[in-house]
Design a protein around this nucleic acid. Structure first.
Lengths: 193, 193
DNA sequence: AAGTAAGTCGAGGTATGCCTCAACTTCTTC
DNA sequence: GAAGAAGTTGAGGCATACCTCGACTTACTT
C-alpha cells in the first residue's frame, strides 16, 4: 500500500536505520537524534522526514531484535530439562541486553510508547510465562515465582549490565547466578510479608 | 575557622538544604537546581552563592544520611545471629533507599564526584564488609559472595526500587527475598565461569 | 543613624536537544 | 531533456537547565 520510495530515499532510510541501530546500541534509546542523523551522513530534517518521532524509529528497529528473544525462548521450550530451558532463556536475554544498550532500555520498559516494541515485548513475555509454568510444573522452579518477578528481574539486571559494562562486563553473570540459586524450589523459603 | 554567616544567610542556607533534601528525595540527584531554589523561596543566584556546585550541595546533605546506614550496620553487627544481622542490614539499606531517590542515586554511585559522599560510602562499605565476613564465618552466607557482589546488589535493587515505586512499591522486597535465598550457603552452587 | 561588608537578585549568556519549514536539489516519468 | 513530484537541507525557533555578574538590598558595627 505505501507507495515505493525513491531510490535515494530508500538508501537514506537504510543508512538511518543502520546508524540508529549503532547509536542506540551504544548510548541507549534516549541518544540524541541529531547524532543518528550525523552518523548516517544525512540532515536532521531527513531523519524527521522518514521517522517523524523517536518512537517510529524505535519501532522500525526493535521489534525484530525482540523477536530474537522469542526464538531463544522457543529453543528453551524445546529443552528436555525445564529448569535448564528456563535458565538458558534468562541468560540469553541478558547476554543480548549486554551487547545492546538500546535493547536494554527497550526491555526494561523505557519508551513503552513505541507500539510495535510494546507488542513484541508482550510476545516475549508470553514465552517467558510458558517457560516459567513449565519449570514450576517440573518442580525445579520455586512455586511463588511469577511473571511479574520476571519483569522485576529484568529491571534489576538491566541496571547491573549498564553499570558494570565498562569496569566488569561479566558482573551480571555472577549476579544472575546468585539470583538463580534463589529461584530453585529447594532453596525457597516463604517470602516475608 | 569559616567566619559565621550573617543571620539571613544562615536562614537561607537552611531553607536551601531543606528544599534540596526534599527535591533530591523526590526526583533524584539530577533534579534541576532551579527547582530547589524555587522551593526554598530563594533565587538561583543565592543557591550558587552558598553551594557553587551540585556536588557541594550533595556533600552538605548526604554524608549524614549515609551515616544512618552505618548506625544500622552497627546494630546489625550486634545481632547474635550473623545471618539475621546481614539480612537486616541489607533490608534496612534498601528501605531507606525506597524512601529517598536521592539516597538511591547516592548509593548506586552516581555523583561519586562528591567527595564527602564518596567518603561516607566507603565507611558504609567497611561495615558491609564486616557483616559479610561474619555471616560467611558463621557458615550461613555462601562463601563466594564478595564485597563487589554487594555493590552489584545495590545497583540491581536501586533500579527495582525506582522502577516499581509508583506501581508496586513493595516489589523490591519480593525481589530481595529471592535473592537472599540464593545467598544462603546451602543454596549455593558453583558459579559458572 | 550612617557606613560598609555581606548577601541577594534575576536577567541574560551558554549549551544541548527537539522539531519545523521554506528554499533547494534530485529522481523519475513521459 | 523538461516538468513535476519526491526528497533533502540546515538555519532557526522552542524549551530546558546550567551558571555568572553587576545592580540592588540587608544586616551588623560603631
Amino acid at each position: 500500500m505505501p507507495k515505493p520510495l525513491r531510490a535515494d530515499a530508500a538508501r537514506n532510510r537504510d543508512k538511518l536505520l543502520d546508524a540508529a541501530t549503532r547509536v542506540f546500541g551504544e548510548r541507549g534509546l534516549d541518544a540524541p537524534l541529531e547524532e543518528i542523523a550525523r552518523r548516517a551522513g544525512v540532515s536532521i530534517g531527513t531523519l524527521y522526514n522518514h521517522f517523524p518521532t523517536r518512537e517510529a524509529l524505535i519501532d522500525a528497529i526493535f521489534p525484530a531484535r525482540v523477536a530474537v528473544l522469542e526464538r531463544i525462548g522457543a529453543q528453551a521450550l524445546a529443552d528436555d530439562d525445564a529448569w535448564r530451558g528456563f535458565t538458558r532463556f534468562v541468560e540469553g536475554v541478558f547476554a543480548l541486553q549486554a551487547e545492546d544498550f538500546g535493547l536494554n532500555d527497550a526491555l526494561s520498559g523505557r519508551f513503552s510508547t513505541a507500539a510495535g516494541l510494546a507488542e513484541a515485548c508482550r510476545g516475549g513475555l508470553e514465552i517467558a510465562r510458558r517457560l516459567i509454568a513449565r519449570a514450576k510444573d517440573s518442580g525445579q522452579l520455586r512455586a511463588d515465582f511469577e511473571e511479574r518477578d520476571f519483569i522485576t528481574l529484568i529491571w534489576a539486571m538491566s541496571k547491573v549490565i549498564r553499570e558494570s559494562a565498562d569496569e566488569a562486563p561479566l558482573a551480571w553473570r555472577r549476579c544472575l547466578a546468585f539470583f538463580l540459586d534463589g529461584l530453585r524450589a529447594e532453596a525457597a523459603r516463604p517470602i516475608p510479608s
